[in-house]
Simulated assay, not measured.
Amino acid sequence: MEHAKQKITTFLMFTGKAEEAMNYYVSVFEQAEILNVQRYGANESGTEGTVAHATFSLYGQVFMCMDSNVEHGFTFTPSISLFVGCNTEAEIDQLFEKLSQDGQVLMPLSRYPFSEKFGWVADKYGVSWQLNLE
């Protein structure tokens, strides 16, 4: 896949789960791929072998992620979410099922006044996804 240079890129910070999450997202979405992974080496600021910086693509949208070696008093919050426009009911149903597995359903997949079919989940890594049938 060829990727145009984005001015703004979503950056996801994990604490030891960046590679696992990235692989998970690439398995959940079609047209997805890991673009680059740089790992912490021996005697660097992060745990050796974990992700210092990585990029992956979902439907041509590039994301960055890393493993922080610092434990923070915060994590992901639904205040910021990734909004996915789905073309078919099969697509929204599949994404909702996979992303909600071991996660949390914030709004059930249903019809709402603003959408024919919509669902909002926080996945097992805490990343929030709004799914909308377009």
Rank of each mutant, 00 (worst) to 15 (best):
V26L: 04
G41L: 12
Q38N: 12
M66Q: 12
F29M: 12
T50R: 04
Q31S: 14
N23R: 15
V62K: 06
L35Q: 15
M22T: 09
Y25I: 10
G41K: 12
F56H: 06
Y24C: 09
G46R: 06
E30S: 15
A32Q: 08
Q38M: 14
M66N: 15
Y40C: 01
H72I: 02
G73K: 14
E30P: 07
V37T: 15
T75P: 02
F63W: 12
Y24F: 15
Q38S: 09
Q61E: 13
V70Q: 15
E20W: 03
E20V: 10
G46P: 05
V26E: 06
E48V: 12
S45A: 13
A18D: 02
M64I: 00
G60C: 09
T75Y: 05
S45D: 14
S57N: 05
V70A: 04
N23C: 10
M22D: 05
A18Q: 01
D67I: 04
S27V: 02
A52S: 10
L58E: 10
R39P: 01
A18E: 02
F29S: 11
E44T: 14
M64V: 03
G46Q: 06
A42F: 01
Y40P: 00
F74L: 10
E48T: 14
V28D: 11
T75V: 01
G49D: 05
E30I: 05
T47E: 15
D67Q: 02
T50D: 01
G49Q: 09
N23I: 03
C65L: 07
M64E: 11
T75R: 07
S57L: 03
Q31P: 01
G49H: 06
N36H: 15
E44L: 04
A21D: 03
A54M: 00
G41S: 11
Y25G: 12
V28N: 10
G60L: 06
E19K: 11
L35D: 09
M66D: 08
C65M: 06
V70M: 14
E19H: 00
N69V: 00
T75K: 08
E20L: 06
A32P: 05
G60K: 09
E33M: 09
S27G: 06
T47A: 13
F63E: 09
Y59Q: 09
N23Q: 14
Y25D: 11
F29E: 10
F63R: 03
A52F: 10
H72W: 13
M66E: 12
F29W: 11
L58Q: 11
